[in-house]
Design a protein around this nucleic acid. Structure first.
Length: 809
DNA sequence: CTTCCAGCGTTTTTT
DNA sequence: ACGCTGGAAG
């Protein structure tokens, strides 16, 4: 990241200007201005897509500081992603010459980490506690299952991880989980064992980070009182994505509950958009917005409805679509821009054709110089859809970039290196121990490790400590391994981060191992990159050098924080100026660069395959696109069962979330939007016949342009689109042989056509269920199944070899 | 310890 | 269809 330009903002004198005169407030619309200059108190800001939400948040902070209503130390701004937090910091720095390091701006987990580092003793954690990511957590659970003889068939570790994370998100410790059945009973037992294991090893998972710091605040009156008094202004981004625990955490910081009502200090500003709530599946609770209004007695709700991103045809689509959801807080996007181009709809015969059309369209857009490739995004509901599109882009030689996949700190070789580093910090981290004890291979087999684990359990100690209790030949290699780690720890005391990592990479044998591996070149490169990452981390975080100078006189701006006798002692021990550092509040010790770097690696897994600088088409899921914007957006696969996804279609809530997802997708586009679907799609190795998505019927006709003839109702298939325009000339690549599809009827039939003769949209009669409509057909021959909706019996999948269906004319 | 193969799962994802 | 995981064989 480039260094923050602290002085590019207007050089406004602090606290001197009256609010409206401040250059900060220029060019804000009335709603934005109202939100930025809200008087102290709690408020909800309903910020529509593209309404300048981040700008309002950052300007609000800047305004609070500039007018002397708050000092940097009094601000807490919390986001979900590191990206959002970084952007806030960057924009704020550009606005004001302010010491951003004095402010608590970060992700929920980042801030929790900071709290726990500062009060690790009160939180019951060792100062060296390590953070488990999802991979680590899974392997910890697997290890635990093996150790305790848990039947992994009945209780798949993945499911257990999900269960444990779910409990924590709801704020539940094992004893809080309601046990209805034996299965739950067992899971709770495993949850408890898992907790004990983590505690013994000094590690916390992401959920624990949140839950533990919530409990820290809840159970320690002076600590809670301190932070409540300190953070006079709390701002929450993407509030609709908060889960129950995060909301409870915020309540702890905001004030105490007195006879059922929240007695709060200061102000909490929650910014969110219920229409963009797309993370219910991971515990997000939109209901927190209503709860917030009720429990905080919110008087002020401000809606930001002016959209600065898209032309009105696009917004009309978004508004019309989302209007089909019930129970919204209510919001309509508007723009001062004109209608712009119509939203283009395309129907393809096959997923391959859809991809070919898309690539042709992209090529001509770029060729005409209308648009840069990086300003074109292709969005899809599920990752599986990217494959066809990628192959077509690749064939056509169009540069593209796919979001998603393994991130830097998640790669195996990086995790190996980090495991060694973590063992230097915390030798009792058994997850890390197991990861590298025999990697690179050093003759420590499964048998030996079983013995070691038994010994450790017997002695109630870590694997590291159990090694010395193990005697005989089996222990020799282990002893050497532990000795190597311990020597390394001694030898790197006081060394700088770069040299520590360098030594570890060599001494661990990782470098040599990958050097001997003929496919290890990439991995070596990544290990090199790890050293670079550490180097730039040290520079950025200001370890070993002075942090940015403080143009803002904190003493002058600091509000009276030490007035309460109850918390005076604590206040004295929590120096304001050091808010940005990770400081042990018991010893005053700051986190070592290595410890800080390991924390950083765990909390921020790095970019998703950034090939920065390359002018490439952007491919991603709709989820991944949230918060981004592009001149031109393609949304593919708008088919029943895919978007809305079949797993979400059955219930009302699921369907509404799918609709919000589509809303998010539409509102990514600035100028040009394409929505497409295909009659057939290859999924899991089978051709599926799909009906076009119901979402098409929820868009306003006037804003659309159908690039292919719109079929009237179901069942009648248009002549194959685009063939006359020469779209499907094989490009000479590996896919040319598929061109025969073009000559065949729009619905490609496998092996001489479907014997059953059914097509989606057809009306059929069933002896038991009566008349119904065919929604989809899957498979062929004896495996062929049809999804049929019967008005009286609902939607059913019927095996055509068994079910007697007759076509109704 | 490495290599191979069978079996499994396949909506969305951040920390 | 396909890629990853884990267990068994070499």
């Amino acid at each position: 990241m480039p260094p923050h330009d602290l002085f590019s903002g207007a050089p406004a004198p602090f606290g001197a200007d009256s609010a409206p005169a401040s250059p900060l407030l220029h060019n804000l619309n009335p709603e934005q201005l109202a939100a930025v200059t809200l008087p102290a108190g709690h408020a909800l800001i309903l910020a529509g897509a593209g309404s300048g939400k981040t700008r309002v948040l950052t300007t609000r902070i800047a305004w609070l500081l500039q007018t002397g209503q708050a000092s940097p130390g009094g601000i807490l701004a919390v986001t979900f992603t590191n990206k959002a937090a970084k952007e806030m910091v960057a924009r704020l720095s550009a606005m004001l010459p302010v010491n951003v390091r004095g402010m608590w701006i970060g992700t929920f987990h980042g801030l929790c980490n900071r709290l726990l580092r500062a009060h690790h003793k009160l939180a019951g954690l060792p100062s060296t506690f390590q953070i488990l990511d999802t991979q680590d957590q899974l392997s910890a659970v697997k290890r635990l299952c093996k150790q305790h003889g848990v039947d992994e068939e009945r209780f798949p570790p993945k499911q257990l991880v999900w269960f444990i994370a779910g409990c924590k998100e709801e704020g539940m410790r094992p004893q809080d989980v309601p046990v209805r059945d034996q299965d739950t009973q067992k899971k709770v037992e495993i949850y408890q064992l898992y907790e004990q294991q983590c505690q013994r090893e000094g590690v916390v998972d992401f959920g624990e980070l949140m839950l533990r710091s919530y409990e820290l605040l809840r159970d320690n009156d002076p600590v809670r009182a301190h932070y409540q008094r300190r953070f006079s202004h709390i701002l929450v981004d993407e509030f609709q994505d908060t889960n129950r625990l995060q909301y409870a955490w915020l309540k702890q910081l905001a004030g105490d509950t007195e006879d059922g009502r929240l007695a709060t200090h200061g102000s909490v500003i929650a910014v969110g958009d219920d229409d963009q709530s797309i993370y219910a599946f991971r515990g997000a609770r939109v209901g927190n917005m209503q709860d917030f209004v009720r429990e905080f007695g919110v008087k002020q709700t401000i809606k930001l409805e002016e959209n600065y991103r898209s032309f009105s045809n696009i917004l009309d689509c978004a508004n019309a679509l989302i209007a089909h959801n019930q129970g919204r807080l209510g919001k309509n996007l508007r723009t001062q821009q004109g209608p712009g181009e119509p939203v283009r709809i395309y129907e393809a015969a096959t997923d391959l054709n859809e991809a070919q059309w898309l690539v042709d369209e992209i090529k001509s857009l770029v060729k005409n110089g209308e648009i840069e490739r990086r300003e074109i995004a292709v969005l899809y509901r599920s990752n599986a859809q990217s494959r066809v599109i990628e192959s077509q882009l690749f064939n056509a030689g169009v540069p593209y970039r796919v979001y998603g996949g393994l991130r830097f700190f998640e790669r195996a070789e990086i995790k190996h290196a980090l495991a060694y580093l973590r063992l230097l910090e915390n030798p009792h981290d058994d997850t890390s121990f197991m990861r590298v004890v025999n990697f690179p291979p050093r003759g420590i087999g499964a048998r030996t490790l079983e013995q070691l684990q038994d010994a450790a359990r017997e002695a109630g100690c870590s694997l590291h400590d159990a090694v010395s209790t193990l005697s005989g030949r089996a222990g020799a290699n282990l002893t050497a391994f532990v000795a190597r780690i311990d020597v390394l720890r001694e030898g790197t005391q006081g060394a700088n981060l770069r040299s520590i990592i360098g030594q570890v990479l060599e001494a661990s044998g990782l470098v040599e191992h990958y050097r001997n591996d003929k496919e290890g070149a990439d991995r070596l490169e990544n290990l090199d990159e790890l050293i670079n990452a550490a180097e730039s981390f040290v520079t950025q975080e200001g370890f070993g050098r002075d942090a940015v100078a403080l143009p803002l006189d904190e003493q002058r701006a600091a509000p009276p924080l030490t007035q309460s006798p109850a918390s005076q002692g604590l206040d004295a021990s929590l120096p304001m100026a050091e808010a940005g550092e990770l400081i042990d509040q018991d010893t005053g010790e700051t986190l070592s660069p290595l410890a800080a770097f390991l924390t950083h690696a765990a909390l921020e897994a790095g970019d998703n395959q950034a090939q920065a600088g390359q002018d490439a088409v952007q491919l991603m899921t709709v989820h991944a696109s949230k918060g981004l914007e592009f001149d031109c957006v393609f949304i593919g696969g708008l088919e029943e069962g895919l978007f809305p996804h079949e797993n979400a279609m059955s219930d009302h809530q699921g369907l509404e979330e799918e609709r919000r997802l589509m809303y998010v997708a539409i509102t990514r586009a600035r100028k040009r939007l394409y929505i497409s679907h295909s009659q057939t799609r290859l999924l899991h190795g089978q051709t599926r016949y799909n009906v076009r998505s119901r979402f098409f019927d929820e868009l306003p006709e006037g804003a659309l342009k159908w690039l292919t003839p719109q079929r009237s109702g179901f069942g009648s298939f248009a002549p194959f689109p685009g063939a006359a325009r020469g779209y499907f000339t094989p490009a000479g690549g590996g896919f040319g042989h598929k061109s025969e599809v073009f000559a065949s009827p729009p619905v490609p039939e496998r092996k001489g056509g479907a014997a059953h003769g059914l097509r989606p949209g057809m009306a059929v009669f069933h002896n038991k269920f009566g008349e119904g409509k065919v929604l989809a057909i899957e498979g062929a021959g004896d495996d062929a199944r049809a999804q049929v909706n019967f008005p009286r019996h609902g939607t059913k999948w019927l095996a055509l070899a068994v079910a007697k269906l007759t076509v109704v004319e």
